[in-house]
Design a protein around this nucleic acid. Structure first.
Lengths: 232, 232
DNA sequence: CTTATCAGTTTGTCATGACAAAGTATTGAC
DNA sequence: GTCAATACTTTGTCATGACAAACTGATAAG
């Protein structure tokens, strides 16, 4: 574990425990470095880490202040399944459809691959707490990953990607809303015309290769997106 | 302008122009630093900057690769008004209500201030391209900023905050959806029961002080949220 | 009393040097 | 020909030293 990370963790603990209260200034970099027996760049990097997480704020000529006692996590690249597991809402997945087919033009465009590229097309129904929560459509290029219905029934798509050594790194999402069609309402046990949250996403790995395109609809009565933002 | 930033900008231009193609590896840090006549830490910092923006990816023992030719901006702390101006959709704002009142409990809780703290309560209707787009409710503690209807009619709330030297730094947002009430439908010229996107947000400044609470509804037929995410 | 100047404090930037860790390519043994 | 050990390349971490820029507060001038 890197030194700067150890320092950051130690600082973070002090703040989370409240031993350095909100609004208080922490020791200046030079003294802190000397007291901990590390160099100033290392100290700076540790502080920088906590600044990026929204715990600390620096001001030149003034010092470094605690602004929030808890880490505000940035928006994360996780899947719904992971979120539900973390929230203890006992997710279950029903695979309604799984087949390979040439990508339709809009999906090929979203994935930034040639039109007609073979993709695995998946339609899944996600339950949480025994109730249907979301209807999810995904397209994964076949040369990225091959999937079986069994895998998908018991694991999140992102978990399967990670297991195959594929790490989503960058994603663009569009969140919107619309009314449920009759078919959607029936599947999600909502009334016709009920409001649905829609989310479309394309995710790329570190190599810039598109891993996944997703077009999902959520029951607005049961789900919302939570975001934590921090500006430079 | 800092040296590392100049280097980053230069690299960024080369990549955006396509002179360094996607997938190509850039020169290694040591050589690049020497060629540009700067130190390796400065070069590293410049590269780090572009990595955080999703343009480059580093791999120890391998090198640094271009993964995307355009900057993927992180989710930004900007207001709807700013977005619309940038998108040339000629926004206009109608202030429906503006008064000071003690903050109701849920709003006081969101702002992390004492219940009953005086806030300015604002109800605005935002137009874009001549059509109503969003109905916005905001609460701003009076000791943070005092507002006049004239200011608000011609400027975004965030612009007014900035002008007063208040910079939103951290925010938490919740995005959801629901059906329009009869009153909302009438104001937004939608049908009754039309789907609306909802967004509630609390924004804090660098000092950890809550600047603003907002609860907005958007016409789902005319607006959606776009997010770019990048994972560490 | 008000305002301008100046010194002190603290973070921001940059250079140099060194070693560690991870991945790749080459070489050698079998 | 295959596999393992080795050398090489490249990024990751860390130390030391120095000066610049921004803010604060005290001091001096009006």
């Amino acid at each position: 574990m890197p030194l700067y990370f150890q320092v950051a963790t130690r600082l973070q603990e002090l703040i989370e425990k409240g031993e350095i209260g909100v609004g208080a200034r922490i020791e200046n970099e030079v003294d802190l470095a000397e007291r901990l027996g590390v160099s100033r760049p290392t100290t700076r990097r540790a502080i920088q880490y906590l600044v990026e997480r929204g715990m600390l704020v620096r001001k030149r000529g003034v010092g470094t202040q605690v602004v929030h006692p808890k880490v505000r996590r940035p928006v994360e690249l996780s899947s719904l399944y992971d979120d539900l597991v973390a929230g203890d809402r006992s997710p279950r997945t029903e695979v309604l459809e799984l087949r390979t087919m040439p990508a339709p033009d809009p999906i090929a465009a979203a994935l930034e691959v040639a039109p007609g590229t073979e993709v695995t097309w998946i339609e899944r129904l996600r339950y949480a707490g025994g109730e249907p929560l979301a209807l999810m459509h995904n397209a994964i290029p076949v040369d990225v990953l091959r999937l079986t219905p069994e895998d998908l029934a018991s694991h999140g798509l992102y978990e399967l990607l990670r297991r195959a050594g594929l790490t989503p790194r960058i994603a663009t999402q569009v969140i919107g809303a619309r009314s449920a069609t009759a078919a959607e309402a029936r599947i999600l046990t909502e009334k016709r015309g009920a409001s649905l949250l829609t989310m479309t996403r394309t995710a790329w790995d570190a190599g810039g290769r598109a891993l996944e395109y997703g077009s999902h609809v959520y029951r607005a009565s049961r789900y919302s997106f939570e975001l934590n933002l921090s500006a430079g």
